[in-house]
Write a protein that binds this DNA or RNA. Structure first.
Length: 111
DNA sequence: TTTATGGCTGTCA
DNA sequence: ATGACAGCCATAA
């Protein structure tokens, strides 16, 4: 479908994120060949329909903290979903990115 | 077409 | 450590 949108590409990347793992907006952008356009990733998520197969909750900001959307409450939902997948949060509701950041296979750069 | 708006990020104080 | 500023650019009106 000729979805000439960047969003579709972003969704594709996020769908590849395994459970229990998280990625930052910037990382998703980079994986989607949009290095430096982390913002667009956030907008893509905001444009997500209620029904989707995209694990938007696995996308967090660079601080490892869940970005709140326009309304409050979603943060708690996102946190709950992640917690259900085994992602731990610290006292500040932050995720240990050094431990939960998703590492796409790429030539074995892992660690 | 132009203008305004962002679920961000990195740098500097 | 936190707070403020500027920059990148797609989508919507």
């Amino acid at each position: 479908m000729a979805t000439h949108g960047v969003y579709q590409r972003i969704y594709a990347v996020i769908r590849r994120v395994p459970a229990g793992r998280v990625v930052t907006y910037g990382q998703v952008a980079e994986l989607a060949s949009l290095t430096g356009h982390a913002r667009q990733v956030g907008y893509a998520l905001s444009a997500l329909p209620d029904q989707n197969d995209v694990p938007w909750h696995r996308v967090v900001n660079a601080k490892g903290q869940v970005s709140t959307r326009s309304e409050a409450g979603y943060g708690a939902v996102q946190r709950a979903l992640l917690a259900a997948e085994g992602v731990n949060f610290d006292e500040d509701d932050r995720i240990d990115l050094t431990r939960h950041r998703w590492r796409p296979r790429r030539g074995g750069l892992s660690r």
